[in-house]
Design a protein around this nucleic acid. Structure first.
Length: 316
DNA sequence: AAAAGTCCCAACCGCCTTCCG
DNA sequence: ACGGAAGGCGGTTGGGACTTT
């Protein structure tokens, strides 16, 4: 099917280019331009097909090609453009002066793709992977994305109400304990032993985790696009940042949890939705709305009620 | 030190699009 | 409008470099 490759012509060299061949090609193009690629090899005295010459020139010999490692900025641009354009490597390359589509494609396949997979993000869709284990593994990173401090710094118009902050803090701490449970079966970062009675053995919570994380991701992504700032620029943190300023000791953290729960309980009983300022946005729904809509409210209530009746894993 | 495994990237392959007679 | 040639693009691969055992 299709045309036979041009290099099928007998006797044409294939494989790596020698410095001599490179020099011939450079000299010829400097003098005459490339003109017709098909005719070039003969004119330049090269025993190669035109296609091979073109590739060698565009991917390697062109004087404006930038060599060396990709910068964090370039990497960011690639991820961002890939989320918009997909595998349109040449279009992506158009936004990165001095980089070739081939180089970007290679860098994507060898570095960025793996990085995203490690973070539980599907490199094709740029969304969280849907199988539960991967989502669980990725939750710390997803939460890192949702770091409130970054949000507040980047989007000065956006202010979060205490309820949302509190809810997020509850979720954050739950998942921190969960992650610790995954890696260490006997103790958490709080140094407290867990039993199978804790709230994370509740199947409803685990079953709903992917939905929560996906929602977080969606909302965060749209939020970040408000500033044309790619989501992924916040993703390469391998640690969970504190959603509320980190407290040095576990007792403070525990206090915060209890305080959060109180706030939540209070808000569940108040009918005033604007007790604090909310997001100023129109079509961009803030990510915290995922934990703020009516459906999920009951869900949160359930969790909180469970956590109040069950032994709190990180209670003093 | 050497064998095995893994990573990385230049180059190739084949399909699709564009150009031109 | 049509068909062939050439260019362009994305997927894939071979083999050298590097790392691990």
């Amino acid at each position: 099917m299709g045309r036979s490759p041009c290099c099928d012509e007998s006797g044409l060299k294939k494989g790596p280019w020698t410095p001599e061949e490179d020099q011939k090609l450079i000299n010829h193009i400097r003098k005459h331009g490339h003109g017709s690629w098909r005719a070039l090899p003969k004119q330049a005295g090269l025993n190669r097909c035109g296609k091979s010459c073109r590739l060698r020139w565009t991917n390697y010999l062109r004087p404006d090609i930038k060599r060396g490692n990709f910068t964090a900025e370039e990497e960011q641009t690639i991820i961002n453009l890939h989320s918009l354009l997909g595998n349109k490597w040449s279009s992506i390359a158009g936004h990165l002066p001095g980089r070739t589509d081939n180089e970007i494609k290679n860098y994507w396949n060898t570095h960025i793709r793996k990085k995203l997979i490690q973070m539980g993000i599907d490199p094709v869709t740029h969304r969280p992977r849907t199988d539960h284990l991967n989502v669980l593994a990725a939750l710390p990173q997803l939460l890192a994305v949702a770091n409130f401090n970054n949000l507040l710094t980047l989007n000065q118009n956006i202010q979060l109400d205490a309820t949302s902050v509190a809810k997020a803090q509850v979720l954050h701490n739950m998942i921190q304990v969960l992650s610790n449970n995954n890696t260490s079966s006997s103790s958490s970062s709080f140094g407290i032993h867990h039993t199978n009675n804790n709230l994370f053995s509740q199947s409803s919570f685990l079953e709903n985790l992917p939905n929560i994380s996906e929602g977080l991701y969606d909302q965060t992504q749209s939020l970040f696009h408000i500033d044309n700032q790619p989501l992924e620029s916040f993703v390469d943190q391998n640690v969970i940042p504190p959603l509320i300023s980190a407290s040095p000791g576990e007792s403070k953290q525990t206090q915060m949890m209890i305080k959060n729960k109180e706030i939540l309980k209070h808000n569940d009983h108040t009918s005033n939705p604007s007790s604090t300022s909310t997001f100023t946005q129109d079509h961009h729904q803030p990510w915290c709305d995922i934990i703020d809509n009516e459906a999920s409210d009951s869900y949160w209530k359930e969790i909180i009620e469970q956590t109040c009746s069950e032994p709190w894993p990180f209670r003093d």
